[in-house]
């Protein structure tokens, strides 16, 4: 475990000793902040109007009208941000030859994969944590329900865990960071649009495709629903990504 921690520390230092972490975090916060601001402004106007009518006044719900769309927007931003966090991790080591140091040290491939993955995951947790500060204002001057807000954030974290595992896999395939990032974006976009196909298809094919797409699994969580099926989805797909990355690195040892 101490081997993994050494790698985590090293990767986090690498993020923060270059402009990478600062640029990604501030860009991410800028976008999320803008979405949040415009949703709140829209919500204010809509709530004022709806309050005139006792029937609609019942339906004013900040969770559904602000947080749920905000979380969906954040998944789209995450599709672009996750590859930026992972593209460097294994591709750069290969390119600069520093992988030779790692592979000739008493580290297992599993420890290398896990260390790199956890570092990216910690970055994602920090970014999510910073956006959560924005919600303080909604909680201070409004009365959102905490449960769907919390499960929404949990959903975003798990979705990030899945995206980063896929990104790490593509970083293991190539020594070119742009190739790694682009393949990740393409894969994540495919996972997103798969759910659109299902609205027209039918039968068992449809349920398979909609299971693979993350949209439905994420949708539940923004509504405050915790379902084991969703956890199984996130855990198994994240594990699969890491397993593939591990297999790619391990294949170097084949005789």
């Amino acid at each position: 475990m101490s081997n993994v921690m050494s790698l985590v520390k090293k990767e986090l230092r690498a993020y923060f000793s270059s402009p990478v972490a600062y640029v990604i975090i501030s860009g991410f916060l800028l976008l999320v902040g803008y979405f949040y601001y415009s949703l709140i402004m829209w919500f204010n106007g809509a709530a004022m109007q709806m309050a005139q009518n006792p029937y609609y006044a019942q339906q004013v719900n900040i969770n559904e009208m602000v947080f749920s769309p905000l979380f969906h927007n954040m998944t789209i931003i995450l599709i672009l941000v996750a590859p930026l966090l992972t593209m460097r991790l294994l591709a750069e080591e290969k390119k600069t030859g520093t992988d030779e140091l790692l592979y000739t040290s008493p580290l297992s491939i599993g420890e290398i994969v896990l260390g790199k993955y956890l570092a990216a995951l910690i970055m994602w947790a920090v970014m999510l944590g910073l956006t959560a500060i924005l919600s303080i204002f909604a909680f201070a001057w409004g009365n959102p329900e905490p449960a769907p807000w919390l499960t929404g954030y949990l959903g975003l974290f798990l979705l990030g865990a899945l995206f980063l595992a896929i990104g790490l896999f593509f970083s293991s395939l190539t020594e070119n960071q742009i190739v790694a990032a682009f393949l990740t974006v393409v894969t994540l976009l495919l996972l997103l649009v798969l759910s659109w196909v299902t609205s027209s298809g039918g039968g068992s094919w449809r349920s398979v495709v909609s299971y693979i797409s993350f949209s439905e699994h994420f949708e539940d969580m923004t509504r405050g629903i915790l379902d084991t099926k969703d956890f199984v989805y996130y855990a198994s797909f994240s594990f699969f990504g890491l397993f593939l990355a591990h297999s790619v690195l391990q294949s170097r040892r084949w005789r």
């Binding site: 690498a14 000793s17 270059s18 600069t96 030859g97 520093t98 992988d99 030779e100 140091l101 000739t104």
Partner: peptide
């Protein structure tokens, strides 16, 4: 190694 494995940062 032939290419010295250095982390330049």
């Amino acid at each position: 190694p032939e290419i010295v494995p250095l982390y330049l940062d």
